[in-house]
């Protein structure tokens, strides 16, 4: 158990890494997707420039809105950042607070709730529509998120996020239950981060948008914060997908010589980067390969994920 100053340093390193990697991964996905589609794609660092641009712009807030409108991005950012810090990246050292996957799932529910309120608050027709859609999608996605993580957590008997890879002990993806749960989890990740079969992240002002619809009334620094929050959520879910289902190369709490510790840390960082590159390729290929589903077909995709996660749970319960 890490305590005091070591824990604080670790958290600061993680926050710094999040601040760099979250926009960078968004840039990489856009760039790779552009290449796949025969375009040049935006620069890798474009998300950083976007953030700087938003920070400099003037903030316009509608007179019709209440305090919820300005507070919602802050609530979302705080909740998503806490959730992001809970997820193990390269090491499996425990988080010194009672932070388990149920807390994780509900921390991700806070931004949804706040953003749905904010979408309604501005009283625009797009905002209300998007809020209603977001609620519908999240109602379907949340149980799957919980169930697919539970499938992996169940054999180890611990709900703590950092304990799941240890409890699983081997490659959960190699077992039937793990494979099915991973597919279900990936479907939910696509829904949660608003990627193509569920939501189109590239369009604006279209009748089908979900995430963009809710943040339509925002401008300036708050809009930048919302984008940043979304990118943090994206990297967090991707890291969780890879570290829960393919927990290879992660640093074990070591007590050996410092060279051994540095060596294992190096391996952990390299595997982590390899996992992220795989994640970027996976998302870009999915987005290029699939077309957006009609709104009412969303239920088919998420229902499919739900049945898969239940099946996985059945396999775990019967011990395969």
């Amino acid at each position: 158990m890490l305590t005091g100053i070591a824990f604080a340093i670790r958290l600061l390193i993680k926050i710094a890494a999040l601040a760099i990697l979250a926009p960078l991964i968004q840039g990489c996905i856009k760039q790779f997707k552009g290449r796949l589609q025969g375009r040049h794609g935006p620069r890798l660092l474009q998300p950083f420039f976007d953030l700087i641009k938003y920070a400099r712009k003037e903030q316009v807030i509608s007179r019709e809105t209440s305090w919820v409108f300005s507070a919602a991005p802050l609530f979302s950012f705080a909740a998503v950042l806490t959730a992001a810090l809970m997820v193990p990246w390269v090491d499996r050292s425990p988080w010194p607070f009672p932070a388990d996957l149920i807390l994780f799932v509900y921390l991700l529910a806070i931004p949804r709730f706040m953003m749905a309120l904010a979408g309604l608050d501005a009283a625009g027709s797009f905002g209300g529509m998007a809020s209603s859609r977001e609620s519908a999608v999240s109602a379907l996605a949340e149980p799957v998120l919980l169930l697919s993580l539970l499938t992996i957590a169940l054999p180890g008997g611990s709900l703590h996020l950092e304990a799941i890879p240890v409890a699983a002990n081997s490659l959960p993806l190699a077992a039937r239950a793990g494979g099915l749960a991973a597919i279900a989890f990936y479907c939910v990740v696509l829904a949660e981060i608003g990627r193509i079969p569920v939501d189109n992240p590239d369009t604006h002002l279209e009748l089908t948008m979900i995430h963009e619809g809710m943040i339509l009334e925002y401008s300036g620094p708050l809009l930048g914060l919302l984008h940043f929050t979304h990118w943090i959520k994206q990297i967090t879910l991707l890291v969780l997908l890879f570290n829960v289902f393919i927990p290879i190369g992660m640093m074990v709490e070591s007590t050996g010589a410092w060279t051994a510790i540095i060596f294992s840390a190096l391996i952990a960082v390299v595997t982590f980067l390899a996992k992220m590159i795989t994640a970027i390729a996976l998302l870009a290929i999915t987005e290029t390969w699939l077309a957006k589903l009609r709104l009412f077909q969303m239920m088919d995709l998420l229902g499919f994920a739900f049945v898969l996660s239940i099946t996985a749970l059945l396999f775990v319960a019967t011990g395969v």
């Binding site: 190699a174 039937r176 494979g179 099915l180 898969l308």
Partner: peptide
């Protein structure tokens, strides 16, 4: 084991 899960997946 994988193929068992896979054919079930295609079934769904």
């Amino acid at each position: 084991s994988w193929m068992g899960a896979f054919v079930l997946l295609t079934g769904f």
